[in-house]
């Protein structure tokens, strides 16, 4: 019997998965042929040729791009400036030409657009090294994001968007750290703007996917936005709870935003766009935040004594047991609804 999750009620219908089939086969209750037949019904047969071809394509393209970045990062002293910039520009032109010839919506175009987006960053970095202007690092990333925004908007490529989102996040973080004053609201402001950026993009992603647009509909595109959003929201919550005094308007706004983000995640991914994996990530984060909140309430932000440790042990067990029970029930209802 699995203790980390137990069933509350008998399932309405018996669902058989690979694990149950393997268990019956291990006990000799079914033959290998029956097991294989059952597996064929449960899981589609693996298309190994397609899988290997994709793996080799992605790996090969990544290695070539890494080699180019590596080359310019470490050998630039030995290359004339115009050759450096010219070579990168030529590669960008080649990538764009591939997209023009192949057209949008193909794997080769996705790889080429992604390469072009990376190469713009390489071009700006090399240009910054040749003609040093004393500009801050955030300007490189901001320029990179701005220069490639039109491409990613046109390309309808999830991979290119993923790269752009990473660049934009770095630009925002560096801008805030290098430009904004380091006062009481420094961290709160950064958390607010990051939540706004990733949360806003997540909303756009969900709207587009909901309207049947194909390219952002892949499930991984949700996770590359949800996980950073949950990460920054949880960090913000823990920081707010750690210093619960002297709140300013910005910190109050952050507190409200954190609560709104958690509420929105639970409502949207339970009701509107059911996704148990996102709910699980949000539940783990919320349970940790709740646990820390109880700890702070008990200690009054001071030193924890003997009784508090014992009480917190029991409270932690209760919070997480409740979270497991809730999530298991929700997952079952989602499965039945499907």
């Amino acid at each position: 019997m699995n203790a980390d999750v137990t069933e509350a009620t008998a399932p309405p219908v018996i669902r058989v998965d690979r694990r149950i089939l393997d268990r019956l086969a291990a006990r000799g209750l079914i033959s290998t042929a029956a097991r294989d037949h059952g597996l064929g019904l449960i899981e589609p047969p693996r298309r190994w040729g397609v899988w290997v071809a994709r793996l080799v394509t992605v790996l090969g393209a990544s290695l070539v791009l890494s080699g180019i970045v590596y080359f310019f990062a470490f050998n630039w002293n030995h290359i004339p400036p115009m050759v450096k910039l010219g070579a990168i520009a030529a590669m960008m032109a080649a990538a764009v030409a591939i997209v023009v010839v192949a057209g949008f919506g193909r794997v080769v175009s996705d790889v080429a657009v992604s390469a072009a987006v990376v190469l713009v960053g390489v071009f700006l970095a090399v240009e910054g090294q040749i003609h040093q202007t004393g500009a801050d690092a955030w300007q490189l990333f901001a320029g990179w994001a701005a220069a490639t925004l039109a491409w990613v908007l046109l390309a309808n490529s999830a991979a290119a968007w993923a790269i752009w989102i990473a660049v934009a996040n770095i630009a925002v973080r560096l801008w805030w750290d290098q430009v904004r004053p380091f006062d009481d609201t420094h961290h709160a402001g950064l958390y607010l703007i990051l939540i706004g950026l990733d949360g806003g993009l997540l909303v756009v992603r969900e709207i587009l996917a909901g309207r049947g647009v194909v390219w952002p509909a892949a499930r991984w595109t949700r996770f590359i936005l949800v996980l950073p959003l949950i990460g920054v929201t949880t960090t913000a919550a823990l920081v707010l709870l750690d210093r619960p005094r002297g709140y300013t308007a910005v910190t109050w706004a952050l507190a409200a935003t954190v609560a709104a983000v958690f509420a929105a995640l639970f409502v949207v991914y339970r009701r509107t766009r059911p996704d148990v994996a996102v709910l699980a990530a949000a539940t783990i984060a919320a349970a940790v935040v709740l646990d820390f909140m109880v700890f702070q309430l008990l200690t009054g932000n001071g030193r924890a004594d003997l009784g508090i440790f014992f009480l917190m042990g029991l409270t932690t067990l209760a919070i997480f047991a409740g979270a497991v029970a809730w999530l298991r029930g929700v997952a079952r209802r989602m499965e039945v609804a499907r």
Binding site: N2, D4, V5, P11, V16, A277, A321, V324, R328
Partner: peptide, 20 residues
């Protein structure tokens, strides 16, 4: 039926229990 009453929990529930 007996096997279905002792399911292997999904990884996210195991992680949640482990963090707690």
């Amino acid at each position: 039926h007996a096997a279905s009453l002792d399911p292997d929990p999904p990884i996210y529930l195991k992680l949640l229990a482990a963090v707690g």
